[in-house]
Design a protein around this nucleic acid. Structure first.
Lengths: 195, 195
DNA sequence: TATGACATGTAATCTGTTACATGATTAG
DNA sequence: CTAATCATGTAACAGATTACATGTCATA
């Protein structure tokens, strides 16, 4: 069957879904609270629009990755508090544990950083370090390739185009430096890891 | 009229549209050639799928920003070559000349870099430098804000989350360094500019 | 003549955006 | 009572992805 049996693949979860699950682990929250996090903290990159959050939460619930319970506590105001299910925890861990591919790099490192940010709480220090090493392994040849492409296009491209390319190279180099700094920071402070 | 009269706004062009127009200035190309650029060069970030490119080209054509002409030259194989119209050139220049806002920064700098990359050819060195200065002006307070948020969350957030935040701060600092390097590179080499 | 690269497209589907709607609760 | 905030949603639409369809041309 060529068109890839829909029941076979594990129902791809978009990045926003993982962002929500990552926040939900450790801190069960309502949709409104999650929106507040997206609009007020450094996670501004994610949409805080209700038209994004609420449908996303319902999708996750339909996949049994999270479960919402209506709180009756304080007032009569309806309010759902969502928690990760065991299946959700597993999905989150699997997402974090994925090796970093070249495709991840060209797609922008936003998703990898999200994975890393949630890694320690969701899967332990060992998983964080593993992810960093995978990141480093993907990053090195990628940076080398970029530098080669930069040299090759040096004559062809002109002016600001070349300059922009150089910015990309610098940013990638900076990222690699951070990865290596993070690895040493993790491996120096503890030998065993907390998991 | 609250719902913002649709005929009033200049029909927002998505980033892919500007990427296509930027490539088309200077080098009229077919859809297939554009796809090749996206799939083979450092512009891999943009989709090379026909389902993205061809509809985007048609949208631009409907807005009279580009015009396609069927080439009859070599064989009988149909092939459209697209060129920027004067209106397209104007739209591209206007997009490049937009001051960089805080919203641009949190949305990720991909679009700003694209604007800069095309700036010199589309609007001249003066526009490039102007854009860089605007970028710098937006970047400085943003970086300061990030650093403050980082310090504030230092105790609260734990482990990899804080580390990821630090990565964001470093990347932003690296970006600012590049901007300043680029400004000096431009202003040192020529006083007047080529426009 | 069969294969593969060239070249262009369409259809189904998914996700996100914008803009609006709805109702409960709290502060003045 | 009224306005603002809390909290949750919906509807219309835009844009991208995936997967497929179509046809041309060169070459082995």
């Amino acid at each position: 069957m060529k068109p890839q049996d829909p029941s076979a693949r594990p129902a791809k979860i978009p990045c926003l879904g993982y962002a929500l699950m990552g926040l939900l682990q450790g801190m069960p929250s309502s949709g409104y609270e999650l929106r507040k996090i997206f609009s007020s903290t450094s996670m501004r990159t994610y949409s805080d629009s209700p038209g994004a959050i609420y449908p996303a939460l319902r999708r996750l619930e339909h996949q049994s990755l999270i479960r919402g319970t209506i709180e009756e506590g304080s007032g009569l105001r309806r309010r759902q508090r969502f928690r990760l299910t065991p299946k959700g925890v597993a999905a989150l861990k699997a997402w974090i544990a994925r090796p970093v591919t070249r495709a991840d790099l060209v797609a922008g490192q936003a998703e990898i950083m999200l994975r890393f940010a949630f890694s320690e709480q969701a899967a332990g220090v060992t998983a964080s370090v593993e992810l960093l090493r995978s990141f480093e392994a993907a990053l090195k040849p990628h940076l080398a390739g970029l530098r080669e492409e930069f040299r090759a296009s040096k004559a062809a491209t002109s002016g600001s185009g070349r300059m922009a390319f150089e910015c990309g190279v610098r940013q990638t180099a900076c990222l690699l430096e951070w990865v290596q700094y993070a690895i040493t920071a993790y491996t120096k402070e503890r030998k065993g890891g907390s998991l």
